[in-house]
Structure formats: structure tokens, C-alpha cells
Computed example of a mutant assay.
Amino acid sequence: MSRRLRMVIGGLLVGIGLLWTLQGLGVVGGSVMSGVTLWAVIGPVVAVLGLSLALSGRHHT
């Protein structure tokens, strides 16, 4: 996988993870995911995986 692709996918995963976290915590409403604790747990996991992927793309030689 190319460096740029890793960084783009990683960035998208970080954004999705943050959104899911905020929905799970009830900060962002208007979804069936809003206020559901499961998404407050899954969101940070996805965000950390995305950050890891983006950083691996940044430091990949």
C-alpha cells in the first residue's frame, strides 16, 4: 500500500472513530448510534487504529 493511501485511509478512520465516539457519548445526535455506549467504545479503537495506519504511512520507507 502506498504511503499516501495509508495516510488518507488512516485519516478517514480517525475521523470516523471520532464521530462514532461523539455519537456514542450523545454529543452528536440524530442517529440510531447516538447515546449507545458501544459506539463510545468502538470509536476510540477505530481512531487509534487509523492514527497508527496514518503514522505508518508517514514513516514508511
Score class of each variant (00 low, 15 high):
50 G>T: 04
22 L>I: 01
32 V>R: 11
13 L>A: 12
14 V>P: 00
42 I>W: 02
18 L>T: 09
32 V>K: 12
52 S>F: 14
13 L>M: 15
38 L>P: 01
57 G>P: 04
19 L>D: 06
25 L>Q: 14
4 R>M: 10
17 G>E: 00
20 W>D: 08
53 L>C: 00
9 I>C: 08
14 V>N: 05
11 G>C: 01
41 V>M: 10
61 T>R: 15
32 V>E: 11
54 A>P: 10
49 L>W: 08
56 S>D: 12
41 V>L: 14
29 G>K: 15
34 S>M: 03
38 L>D: 08
15 G>A: 11
34 S>Q: 06
6 R>D: 11
42 I>S: 03
36 V>W: 13
57 G>N: 04
44 P>E: 01
53 L>F: 02
5 L>D: 09
6 R>V: 06
22 L>F: 14
43 G>M: 00
15 G>I: 12
25 L>M: 13
54 A>Q: 07
10 G>Y: 00
3 R>V: 08
38 L>H: 10
14 V>T: 05
46 V>P: 03
41 V>Q: 11
16 I>C: 11
34 S>T: 14
60 H>T: 13
14 V>H: 05
15 G>P: 01
2 S>F: 07
43 G>K: 01
31 S>W: 05
6 R>L: 14
16 I>V: 13
30 G>F: 00
58 R>L: 15
37 T>C: 03
7 M>T: 09
11 G>H: 03
49 L>P: 02
39 W>F: 11
28 V>Y: 10
40 A>Q: 02
51 L>A: 15
29 G>D: 10
52 S>K: 11
2 S>R: 04
39 W>H: 08
40 A>P: 04
2 S>V: 12
28 V>N: 10
53 L>I: 06
27 V>C: 08
42 I>C: 04
43 G>S: 06
55 L>R: 09
1 M>A: 10
1 M>K: 10
42 I>A: 10
17 G>I: 00
58 R>D: 07
42 I>Y: 02
5 L>R: 12
37 T>F: 12
4 R>A: 13
44 P>Y: 05
54 A>K: 03
57 G>V: 03
25 L>N: 10
61 T>H: 15
2 S>A: 13
11 G>Y: 00
45 V>M: 11
6 R>Q: 14
23 Q>K: 14
42 I>M: 08
23 Q>T: 05
30 G>W: 00
3 R>I: 09
26 G>D: 07
9 I>G: 03
22 L>V: 00
40 A>G: 11
23 Q>I: 01
9 I>P: 00
44 P>G: 07
49 L>T: 09
24 G>Y: 01
3 R>A: 14
19 L>F: 12
48 V>G: 04
28 V>F: 15
28 V>R: 05
34 S>I: 07
58 R>M: 15
18 L>Q: 07
61 T>F: 15
17 G>R: 00
24 G>W: 00
12 L>W: 04
23 Q>V: 07
10 G>K: 01
51 L>S: 10
1 M>I: 12
11 G>E: 02
9 I>R: 05
3 R>S: 13
29 G>P: 09
44 P>M: 05
42 I>L: 13
31 S>M: 06
21 T>C: 08
34 S>A: 12
12 L>E: 08
29 G>V: 08
21 T>N: 09
1 M>T: 13
11 G>S: 03
16 I>G: 06
7 M>E: 06
2 S>P: 08
41 V>C: 04
8 V>Q: 12
9 I>S: 07
3 R>W: 07
39 W>P: 04
